[in-house]
Amino acid sequence: MQATDGRTYNFPADLRGKVVVVSFIYTHCPDICRMTIGRMLEVWEKVGSDTGIVFATVTLDPARDTLGALRDYAAVWGIPLGRWLLLTGTIADVERVHEAFGVVARKSYTERLPSGEEVYFVDHTDAVFLLDRQGIIRDRREGSSLDVAAYAERVQQLAKSE
């Protein structure tokens, strides 16, 4: 997987040793993913100063979400790139990551705009995951309706316990 820090990752294996907060979005998603990223930013504000914690956001739409698109998205949203990676890759690589997390992403419907352009949206799992330092999923919950305070506490708890 290619990340916004310019490096290539065997994700999530290469992040072992860190507590990782994993979310899934696509940049053409105007609703659910926006809420998830909004919640993730609030969690970041509470726990982001802990250098043992990494945030990773994986695309649900590798065909459109190039590294450039993800960097633009990060800029608009004020996502602090560095210990927050946005990841994309080939369709096969991204699907492999989806499968590992039990995440579903499929084209839901295609529409032709008056301009003649064809657009599509993606039906997808609405979930965020918490990985321990061994890369084991220790928490999974809905991302767009996340209770930020409770989740931040859970992340901090895991970071301290390891």
């Binding site: 609703d31 659910i32 997808h124």
Partner: peptide, 17 residues
């Protein structure tokens, strides 16, 4: 271009528009 959309939850738990 502008449209009215609704968000749906599918039977498999996925969300979409």
């Amino acid at each position: 271009h502008t449209e009215i959309h609704t968000t749906v939850r599918n039977s498999d738990g996925t969300m979409g528009m």
